[in-house]
Simulated assay, not measured.
Amino acid sequence: MRIGKQDAPFTSICTSDAHSITVRGRDLCGDIIGKMDFTSYFWLLVTGEEPSEVQKLFANAVLAAIAEHGLVPSVVASRMTYAAAPEAFHGAVAAGLLGCGSVVLGSAEVAGRFYADLVGTVRAGTGTPGEVAAEGVRTLRAARQAIPGFGHPQHSAGDPRALLLLAMAEEHGIVGEHIGMLYALRDCLPETLGRPLPINVNGAIPAVMLDVGFPLAALKGISLLARTASLIAHLNEEASRPIGFIMSGAAAQAVTFDGDTASPD
């Protein structure tokens, strides 16, 4: 049984023969290894084009911004998995990445799609950025959904990573429609939501990356690639300074059982 369209059996990313390996039109050994940094190679792999210096600058910046933030859920899952299965380093990395969802880590993609939809509405001529942003917020609130890219449980005065990325965007002149929509959302929140909220890093990252030309469909890959580096670091530490079972025990102590208990015979 066929699932989906399968009439174009092609790939333009990589091929090889007995003497060479070609990646995106470049000879891997002659043009890439030892000559291209990994961030540029990542951009080339995803888009088919080498990044400009500004694109590389922002790709490096966002990868650094989202890679590490302490014992977040993805890291906890990874370290606890490694504690239980130390033979499965790859499985522990995978366990951390599998939690990349709409609330934590993968929320940059959710925010990016939201901003891109609103930008598309503005392009269609159905309202100003401020009007479209306000309607977008009202729609989310009616559905009892959070505003993607806003608020932070710790950085209530402003996420320093987001503030820096947006300052860099201003400095390098790459503020476009998506950052503009991010600002329009920020500005309408006091009236539509009843209070202001700070832009968080998962709001700044997609706005910046979309404005420098990174594809919307690959946005989640930024978070996945960056967090993989962090997970490897945490697992390396777990091997010599294990805390996986400590975290597991702390979780058991922190949660109170309120179910029925068996009656003694």
Rank of each mutant, 00 (worst) to 15 (best):
A92M: 08
A92H: 08
V93F: 12
V93A: 08
V93E: 10
A94L: 13
A95Y: 11
A95S: 15
G96A: 03
G96E: 03
G96D: 01
L97A: 09
L98R: 14
L98G: 08
L98A: 13
L98C: 13
G99R: 10
G99L: 15
G99A: 03
C100E: 05
C100H: 14
C100T: 15
G101L: 01
G101E: 02
G101I: 04
V103N: 14
V103P: 07
V104M: 12
V104C: 12
V104K: 15
L105K: 14
G106Y: 02
G106F: 03
G106I: 00
S107V: 01
A108C: 08
A108D: 02
E109V: 00
E109W: 00
V110F: 09
V110D: 03
V110N: 03
A111V: 00
A111R: 06
A111N: 10
A111L: 06
A111W: 03
R113C: 02
R113W: 02
R113Q: 04
F114G: 01
F114W: 14
F114L: 04
F114K: 09
Y115N: 03
Y115T: 03
A116C: 10
A116K: 10
L118M: 11
L118D: 01
V119A: 12
G120T: 00
G120Y: 01
G120H: 04
G120D: 09
G120V: 00
T121C: 06
T121I: 01
T121F: 00
V122S: 01
V122L: 08
V122W: 07
R123V: 08
R123I: 03
G125H: 09
G125F: 09
G125W: 07
G125D: 02
T126V: 04
G127T: 05
G127L: 01
G130R: 10
G130H: 08
E131Y: 02
E131M: 06
V132N: 04
V132W: 04
A133M: 06
A133N: 04
A133D: 07
A134W: 08
A134H: 11
A134Y: 09
G136E: 02
G136T: 00
G136M: 03
G136Y: 09
V137F: 04
V137C: 10
R138G: 06
R138C: 09
T139Q: 10
T139K: 12
T139V: 08
T139D: 10
L140A: 05
L140K: 15
R141A: 08
R141C: 11
R141Q: 13
R141N: 09
R141K: 15
R141H: 06
A142H: 14
A142K: 14
A142D: 13
A142I: 02
A143H: 13
A143D: 10
A143L: 11
A143Q: 14
